[in-house]
Design a protein around this nucleic acid. Sequence first.
RNA 1: GCGCCUGUAGCUCAGGGGAUAGAGCGUCGGACUCCGGAUCCGAAGGCCGCAGGUUCGAUUCCUGCCAGGCGCGCCA
Length: 645
Amino acid sequence: MRLWRKSLKEKIREQLVPLFPLEEAELELTQPPSSKMGDVALPFPFRLARKIKKPPRHIAEQAQPQLAQIEGLARVEIAGGGYLNLFLDRKKFIKEMVLGKTEKQELAEEKKIIIEHTNINPNKAAHIGHLRNAVLGDTLARCLKYKGEQVEVQNYIDDTGVQVVDVVFGFLELERKTLADIQALSGKLDDYCWDLYTRVSAYLQEHPQAQNKRNVYLKKIEKGEGEEARVAAYISREIARAHLETMKRLDISYDVLPCESSILHLKFWERAFQLLQEKKAITLAQEGPNKGCWIMPLTHRTEKEKVIVRSDGTVTYVGKDIAYQLWKLGLLGLDFYYEPFLQENGHTIWITTHQPTPHQVHFGGGSKVYNVIDTRQSYLQDVVVQGLRRLGYPQEADKSIHFSYEMVALSPQSLRELGLEPPPGEEDRSFYEVSGRKGLGIKANDFLDRLEAKAYHEVDQRNPDLPRPVKEEIAHQIACGALRYFMLKYTRNSLIVFDFDEALNFEGETGPYLQYTYVRIQSIFRKLKERKKIVVEDLITPEKLNQIDLSPLNPQEADEMWDLIYLASLLDEEVLHSIVTLELANLAKFTFNLCQKFNAYYHKYPILAEPEAKIQFLRIITVYYLQNTLSIALQLMGLPLPEKM
RNA sequence: GCGCCUGUAGCUCAGGGGAUAGAGCGUCGGACUCCGGAUCCGAAGGCCGCAGGUUCGAUUCCUGCCAGGCGCGCCA
């Protein structure tokens, strides 16, 4: 852990540079196919072979004695056609890893990183598609914080958009309700609106003439006028609160909720428009179909130019997004006012407002921004980034990252389970897109309830004597773990076709499997204390670890212990790699593999029952190190750590 | 039509210019009077979509084709 690999690489370079014309990129450290062949492989002889016209094997032979001198290496072997395989000094390495601090690293590269995720329209309940977004964003935030970055998490609330307008329209026009009626509604507003939104969508479909009236609503809500705006404000706040509740079940939280209403009232767009005109980032189309519109020419994409301001002078969605992105990067020269929205475990979630407040907090102004949005929006995200470029901010453009991922869709089977019909004309598709408009989707809370109910049943079978609230808490932890792991295990490009059987599974490659592994380690430690009066922490001291003696182990066990510790030590790199590639599935797979290997290990090598103290000690430090590593990995993915389950 | 993404075991998915292509699920067969069986072990199962090209070497890179998905609004 702790960048040992980097320092190893430097030492290797020192040894090799006098011998060979070796470029930085040519010195690559890889993994031999089997740990028996070595811990680290150097394939550079193959790359050099062509360059200096010598056979790889010959190069390897020349390098071998030099490399063998490096401190921390036990030996160096030549394998295959010219691989150099390095074996680490096991005793030294184990000691360093087990004693090594496993806290946050100090590798920050940015002043402040902003992650925008969740961004659910506040007009209906959250569904499973939103959960993928939130889990990815939250996990990225955790990984970046672990790396040492300062991270600010934003959740954008489109409280004046057409989706909210539709629901307001439904309440006032279709249901003839007043604000007071709405406030008096029993039950959860987000669930109520889930159905209402579907009805409104259908109504507007069937009554095109109602569009005009809806547009009046839109204008009033944007301007903040009348009952319409008051209802919109109430609904959007209430539903945003409901979304936060849902996300809290998954241990996901935020720092600030920027609202579109604030952006409108504080004239963020007007400022951005001014900047775009000044820098000639957008132009007024003189002819063609977009005549009279302000458009942005696109150079990277082959799609047509993008309209930013309509011929009637109103701004499009992308235009507002450019203004928002400028604010996030501290380039707009304007800021919101803020007030507390709610308290969660001592943490305040702030919301923006256009009225001055006494609170001296500030958000935005990041040096790097991740926008977690599904892949269908990549074209628009490209437009935003290109806007920055055309405004003369190439660095900021490079640091505006669209963290894109594929959507979550529903399998035909899951549709049937929900009692829903496929949309007309789409009866034999292999998956169905979630659609709030059509009411096609699985509500996040409903699914979490199902997970919790199943988890409770399992816990109850295994630990019937635990008090009910404890069992409920554990069930909650397992449900959270199951859901989060499920959302993380697929790579970003992979469309998740949601299937209840798969998502409700607790065996195999699942969150509960990982949690179970952790719980069993806890259980071993507990029993060591109870039955043998051994307190594991007391054994982990520099003095005791200096005396590590691997010789009592038979070679088979020594290798397996080594493999495990070595694999676990790669966690840090795995996290950094996951950040760079934005493939959090790497971390998920890594942790799963680690658990698998560990489960096999302790199945084979008992700890409590081991009579030989020296062997027991070695097994204990192995388990101790695994427990440490595993708890970090699970927390990075947001999987709770139950004591029992 | 144009752009982006995907095609790997029955299913769901990893991987990746080189040393025997890997998991989970499912199927079949096993496991210690055991530290938790939400576990572990084993078996069966693959022309890595097709065809060319680059390379000493391609499942991986390039091109073309085929198949599927998603985008391409003066909607958000």
